[in-house]
C-alpha cells in the first residue's frame, strides 16, 4: 500500500488508548485486513513511508504468518487516510456529470507502548527521562486529537483488572491540559470516544454475550458470525466489568461518563482475528469457533483465516463524527 502524496496532513487525529496487551497493534493490522475483505471501496492509505511500512508489516504478520504483531515498543506516530468510494453527482441539463473526489477521512494514529498510559513508572532502556518525554509527547497527541479509540480487554480485566489504572491517570491529565487551553466544553472533554471491547472471539466473552441474549447476526455476513450491536455493547461492557479482578472496572464506565458527553461515546464489540471458520464450510460453527492455537513453548498462533469483526466500524464512526464536526 502506497501513500497518497495528494492527501496532505490529516485533518483529524485518532489516538489509540488501552492497557498493555489489550490488542492495539493487532487492531491496526486487523483494520487493514478488514478493509480489504469489505465489498465496498473503503481502503486505508499510508500518508508516509513509515506508516505504510508499519501497516504492511503488521498486516502480513497477522494474515500470512498467523502470528500476532509485536506490541509497540516505542512511541510512533502514523498517519493514514481512510479513502471511501467516489461519489458521482447527477447530470444537470446537458452538463456532463463530474465525479467528485472520493470521501476521505483523515486518520492519524498514535501507537504507543501500552504501559505508557499507566499510572506507575515506565521502564525503558533509556531511563525515566525518556519515559517522561514519551508521556509528554503522547499527552500532546491526545490534546491535539479529537477522536479516541479506547481498547478494553475483558480477559485482561478478568485476570488483572487494570483497565481503570490505565485510563484514569492520563484522562485526568488530559482534562487538566484541555482546561488550561480552554478546550473543555460544558465541563467535558471535546473528544469522541470509540470504546472497543476486544477479544469477542474468546469463548468467555462470547458466552457472556450469549447468556445476556445480546447476540445478533448481520444478514449480509457471509460467515454468519454472531455480533453485538453498538446499542447492546454498553450492556455487555457493564456485564464484563462485573467480573473484573480488581472490582474497579465499573469506574471505567463512570470515568467515561464524567469526562465525555454521553453522545460522544460509542461502544463496539470487536475481534481482531475473528472466529475460526472451517475452509470447506466457510460458516461459523458454534461447536468450533476458537481461532487461537497454542504451540508448545511458543506464543499463541492464529489458527485459521483472520476475519476481523467490527474493527472498521469504530474508525468510520469516529471519522464521520469528526468530519461532521469540521476541522478543529
Amino acid at each position: 500500500m502506497q501513500s497518497d502524496p495528494a492527501q496532505g496532513p490529516p485533518a483529524h487525529d485518532i489516538a489509540m488508548w488501552g492497557a498493555p496487551g489489550s490488542g492495539k497493534t493487532t487492531l491496526l493490522a486487523a483494520l487493514n485486513i478488514a478493509l480489504m475483505r469489505r465489498k465496498d471501496e473503503w481502503k486505508i492509505v499510508g500518508s508516509d513511508a513509515a506508516s505504510s511500512d508499519y501497516l504492511i508489516e503488521r498486516t502480513n504478520a497477522l494474515s500470512s504468518g498467523k502470528i500476532f504483531p509485536e506490541a509497540s515498543q516505542s512511541l510512533e506516530h502514523y498517519r493514514w487516510t481512510l479513502v471511501g468510494p467516489a461519489e458521482r453527482q447527477e447530470r444537470r441539463w446537458l452538463r456532463k456529470a463530474r465525479p467528485t473526489p472520493p470521501l476521505t477521512i483523515g486518520i492519524s494514529m498514535v501507537d504507543a507502548p501500552g504501559g505508557l498510559f499507566s499510572a506507575g513508572p515506565l521502564h525503558t532502556a533509556n531511563g525515566s527521562g525518556v519515559a517522561d518525554d514519551l508521556r509528554r509527547r503522547l499527552m500532546d497527541n491526545l490534546v491535539k486529537s479529537r477522536g479516541l479509540v479506547f481498547l478494553f480487554d475483558p480477559i485482561r480485566e478478568f485476570e488483572l483488572g487494570d483497565a481503570f489504572d490505565h485510563l484514569h491517570p492520563p484522562l485526568t491529565r488530559l482534562a487538566e491540559k484541555m482546561l488550561e487551553i480552554g478546550e473543555l466544553r460544558d465541563g467535558m472533554l471535546p473528544h469522541h470516544v470509540a470504546v472497543c471491547i476486544t477479544k469477542f472471539d474468546d469463548p468467555r466473552v462470547l458466552e457472556t454475550a450469549q447468556k445476556l441474549h445480546l447476540l445478533d447476526s448481520a444478514p449480509d455476513d457471509e460467515y454468519g458470525f454472531p455480533r453485538v450491536t453498538s446499542e447492546d455493547a454498553r450492556d455487555l461492557f457493564r456485564a464484563l466489568c462485573e467480573v473484573s479482578a480488581s472490582g474497579n472496572a465499573d469506574m471505567v464506565v463512570n470515568a467515561l461518563d464524567q469526562f465525555f458527553h454521553r453522545t460522544r461515546v460509542e461502544f463496539f464489540v470487536t475481534s481482531s482475528i475473528g472466529f475460526y471458520v472451517r475452509p470447506h464450510t466457510k460458516t461459523f460453527d458454534w461447536n468450533d469457533y476458537q481461532n487461537l492455537l497454542p504451540e508448545a513453548g511458543k506464543d499463541l498462533r492464529i489458527r485459521g483465516q483472520v476475519h476481523p469483526v467490527n474493527v472498521v466500524e469504530p474508525m468510520l464512526w469516529l471519522g464521520r463524527r469528526l468530519a461532521a464536526g469540521g476541522p478543529r
Binding site: 474468546d202 469463548p203 468467555r204 458466552e207 461447536n287
Partner: peptide
C-alpha cells in the same frame, strides 16, 4: 471437549 468452551482447549 466436544465443543468450544471456557477451558479454551480446542474441540
Amino acid at each position: 471437549p466436544a465443543r468450544t468452551n471456557r477451558s479454551l482447549i480446542l474441540p
